[in-house]
């Protein structure tokens, strides 16, 4: 009965964009493996980085090996975060609108599957592909960097989970929008609008307390609480990887917001006529 889950994976892989990300991730990791050379030595354990045989860093005021590793891993995690935000979201934007098109949804609904089951199979199929891509890149680069530096930073692996929770949140939001607008492009643009324009504006208003009316003030606070927070998630990623103090508050909120968006989407999907 997991035909739709498997079909969703097949559909995403057929779009080639995910395969391209896999190939690029592999090339990147292989480049790290063969081209990056690290020497740690001397009295103060000075780190010398060589890329394709050229020394990258100067000799003065060098940070520790842990710090350099942290910077590299933060850079990779940030890149993976934006890959999930742009490429993965773009690749998955058409999944629900395409499924809801007349002639496609009729056939799926005529199968002995409950609507909950249809929704979850479609949703989890998309999550599975993105999770595989993100975890592959993070895990592969973690192994290579750990071997090269001789430092096994397990917090970097944890950053992969943070990225996935954030993706879950925005994908759930996009799915909810897609159920209303039934267009991949429009739902993607509206999601970007909410994440990159609306959420920062609401965040700024909430932070500076420019509203006096208690109703608007509370509404803005609730919205600020619920909306995806790109900046805070990036800071969280960096703090986790760099072993700095952090709280998981923003990621718990992402998780709760995502679950609420999934629940509302499911209610709408179950009540819709096609």
């Amino acid at each position: 009965m997991n035909g739709l889950f498997r079909l969703t994976i097949k559909e995403l892989l057929s779009k080639k964009i995910i395969i391209t990300v896999f190939i690029l991730a592999t090339i990147f990791c292989l480049t790290l493996m063969f081209a990056l050379n690290i020497r740690i030595g001397g009295i103060d354990s000075k780190v010398i980085l060589n890329l394709f045989g050229n020394q990258v860093n100067g000799d003065t005021n060098m940070p520790s090996a842990e710090k350099i590793l942290g910077y590299i891993q933060t850079g990779i995690a940030g890149t993976v975060f934006f890959i999930s935000l742009f490429i993965a979201l773009f690749a998955t934007s058409g999944l629900f609108p395409d499924m809801l098109k007349k002639g496609n949804i009729d056939l799926i609904l005529s199968k002995p599957l409950s609507r909950d089951n249809i929704f979850y199979q479609r949703f989890s199929g998309a999550l599975a592909v993105v999770a595989a891509t993100v975890l592959y890149l993070i895990a592969f680069s973690w192994i290579i960097l750990s071997v090269k530096f001789g430092i096994w930073n397990f917090r970097y692996l944890f950053s992969g989970l943070i990225i996935l929770v954030f993706f879950f949140n925005i994908f759930a939001l996009m799915t909810l929008i897609a159920l209303f607008v039934r267009s991949g492009v429009v739902s993607l643009l509206l999601t970007y609008f909410i994440v990159f324009i609306l959420a920062p504006i609401i965040g700024t208003i909430a932070q500076f307390g420019v509203l006096n009316d208690s109703f608007y003030k509370n509404s803005v606070s609730i919205l600020h609480f619920m909306l995806p927070k790109v900046n805070e998630t990036l800071v969280l990623l960096s703090n986790i990887i760099m072993s700095q103090e952090f709280t998981l508050g923003s990621i718990w909120i992402s998780l709760i917001s995502g679950v609420i968006a999934v629940w509302i989407s499911l209610v709408i999907f179950k009540r819709s006529d096609f």
């Binding site: 079909l7 097949k10 057929s14 007349k102 496609n104 056939l107 005529s110 002995p112």
Partner: peptide
């Protein structure tokens, strides 16, 4: 049950 819809849209891939 088996069903053939009128305006079917089968996945081209």
């Amino acid at each position: 049950v088996g069903y053939l819809s009128e305006d079917h849209r089968f996945p081209g891939y």
